[in-house]
């Protein structure tokens, strides 16, 4: 169960990273051109998701480590 939750956080981060990279990988935002609304939206949402997923994953991981230390005594 805990692993599924952690995997969800990793997927959030991955989705955010993909959303940031998608306009350039799929070429619907040519480099050097004026940014389209779709590209701006994808990068914005992707950035938020990537930061949240990254931070959430490490906060959850640190909490788990803390629980293990507490259980060890």
């Amino acid at each position: 169960m805990s692993r599924v939750g952690m995997a969800g956080l990793v997927i959030v981060f991955t989705a955010g990273a993909w959303l940031i990279a998608a306009p350039f990988v799929l070429r619907f935002q040519p480099s050097g051109a004026h940014w389209t609304g779709a590209a701006r939206m994808d990068v914005l949402v992707g950035g938020v998701l990537a930061v949240a997923g990254f931070a959430g994953f490490f906060v959850a991981l640190s909490g788990r480590v803390k629980e293990l230390y507490a259980a060890r005594g």
Binding site: G8, V12, L49, G53, G56, V59, K66
Partner: peptide, 11 residues
């Protein structure tokens, strides 16, 4: 830990 997981997944 749980609160962070809940918040991030809800986001």
């Amino acid at each position: 830990r749980y609160l962070t997981g809940l918040c991030v997944t809800a986001l």
